[in-house]
Design a protein around this nucleic acid. Structure first.
Lengths: 339, 339
DNA sequence: TTGTAAGCGTTATCAA
DNA sequence: TTGATAACGCTTACAA
């Protein structure tokens, strides 16, 4: 592998000149530059970013920390789509992405800060992380710039990207109320997710605004998992025939509720209306197709990387968060209640 | 950020000793080691892998080159699941992953070799790349170890992981023949995919083995895309009512054919049997659920990274490829033909 | 068992 | 406009 030394020797100039010529500095003679560029090409030179990063103390790398990057994520594609957005945005501004995957085992061995500093990443994007994850505290304490996806944490050089979860939930519930439903249950995700609290808040607020009672017994825990949602919904729906609609905090859980309803012989949407959240790819393909609150996952990723790079450049010190819109997508799992 | 120099100074020893102590060399006094480890902890030291890589000329990094890492991949989840496998396998052996995403624009600016050398990756895994992609030739020419997913290329330090596509296709077609079908069409992917040729070969071989004719007009091109498959299948099925079964080279294309069939008023599987390939998440959720040839995508990724690291360690110079099994998953899109 | 010194491939400071 | 030289944080002969 050719280095600038080789070029310098071959071109008969000093390494300093080579470095400056190749980096486009103005204080180098056109003829010299031409000569250097030619020999560089001839020697098939590529710069060594490791060495450059070392001396400049800038790695042009963003760490991507995905908690439990694993197959279970395959179903909702959330992680993947966000990642695509991050990737596009990062490469737009010349950053490379390094993938840290962590699980609780590794986490015990290596702290967040260690992970980042070892690889000298300039900043990190964290995704799929639970509110009680020890990494979060570390991030606040460390001074490594970081952007969270769907966790509302703020601090010096720490920001987040999310969608308006309260509003999204309100839209979903309002849609059901407008159809005439009054007995509306909710299947929520686990408490360790920021979005759970938000979506519940939207659910409760909308009920209250419509003058409907909020009943704790109507709120089930589906852990964001399809089978857990099914397991929770089955006995509930059996015990509560008065319930005509269910709002689910994720599409995956909505699938579980659909399964439970089918096992109980309930027709969707005639006997039971269901609304999900996320608009995962699957939701278009279920039968019937799922009404849901759509989030632009790609854009979330794109904005996350954009926010991080702007923090890195210290563009706008006040811009520490990004709340995107979401929208109601009415498909075929919702209809007026049967009376 | 503390460096070994800081530790050396603070502990009153030389940097050499610090380096050796921290790296577990045996030729260092237990007491000294203890002292060094303590001060390292106290100073909250993390090693700088950049510096280490530079001097050792080993980056402990694998490049992940995904052609067009984008939203269109969201539907089949193929890329994502393979990535999960790669990630797990790589972290098992202490490698980090750096994500190169390329599109044809960037590719013009930067060659494969440049990309790799700049970031000093030790090896690369290439995924989603077409047979006519210029990067492939570059790989062969460069001497950077590389493993392809689903492209059968071999060379010095170059290998691949795939599943037995010919056999998979044969299973699919045999299943249809066993059900009693004789007029079996195929919707294939584009010619730039290695797997297209293989799956076609399996299709033709199985027909021939069963004494059935192979008709070129029965082989359509769906470009691996759902809408293209639908567009190709619609007029074909209309013009060929004698066809009672279709084998598709991907599940996504099978979805397209199902759409076309529905538009033509054909019932699945009564009027038309359909078999896909891949076993994507969606295939379980279509109505009816899709019969398909399942590939373990996670395992493909896992084996790819394992193969690459074994090439890097020069474990077994003859082990340059890995062909995994696939299996027929019979769901509800296949049935005996109506007579 | 420990330390000195050179070197990895860059960039940056300063003087020429 | 150019070139010595030091520095980035680390590993590794080699010497002590």
């Amino acid at each position: 592998m050719a280095t600038i030394k080789d070029i310098a020797k071959s071109a008969g100039v000093s390494v300093t000149t080579v470095s400056r010529a190749l980096n486009g500095y103005s204080d180098v003679n056109d003829k010299t530059r031409k000569l250097i560029e030619d020999t560089a090409k001839q020697l098939n030179y590529s710069p060594n970013t490791l060495a450059r990063s070392l001396v400049m103390n800038k790695s042009q790398t963003i760490g991507l920390l995905v908690s439990e990057l694993n197959r279970s994520g395959a179903k909702d594609m959330f992680t993947y789509e966000v990642m695509c957005g991050i990737n596009d945005s990062a490469s737009d501004v010349g950053y490379d992405l390094i993938l840290f995957s962590t699980n609780s085992v590794m986490q015990k061995q290596k702290s967040y800060t260690q992970l980042c500093r070892e690889r000298q990443v300039e900043g990190v994007i964290m995704q799929g992380i639970k509110m009680d994850d020890p990494y979060i505290k570390e991030v606040i304490d460390s001074n490594i710039p970081c952007v969270f996806v769907d966790v509302e944490v703020e601090g010096k050089d720490v920001g987040y990207v999310t969608t308006d979860n309260v509003f999204g939930a309100q839209m979903a519930v309002k849609h059901l109320i407008n159809l005439g439903h009054t007995e509306i249950a909710m299947v929520n995700g686990h408490d360790q997710a920021h979005v759970s609290a938000k979506r519940r808040k939207g659910y409760e607020r909308e009920l209250t605004d419509a003058g409907l009672p909020v009943r704790d017994t109507y709120i089930l825990n589906g852990e964001f998992l399809e089978p857990m949602a099914e397991a929770a919904a089955f006995p509930f729906l059996q015990a509560h025939p008065e319930v005509t609609a269910v709002f689910c905090a994720s599409d995956l859980m909505a699938l579980g509720v659909m399964r439970a309803a089918k096992r109980l012989g309930l027709r969707i949407p005639e006997d039971l209306s269901i609304v999900g959240f996320d608009d995962i790819v699957l939701s278009e393909y279920t039968s019937p197709p799922l009404t849901t609150v759509g989030q632009d996952k790609y854009q979330m990723g794109y904005e996350a990387a954009k926010l991080l790079t702007s923090i890195l450049k210290n563009d706008d010190p006040n811009q520490k968060m990004c709340v995107l819109d979401n929208r109601l997508i009415v498909r075929e799992t919702t209809a007026p209640p049967r009376k």
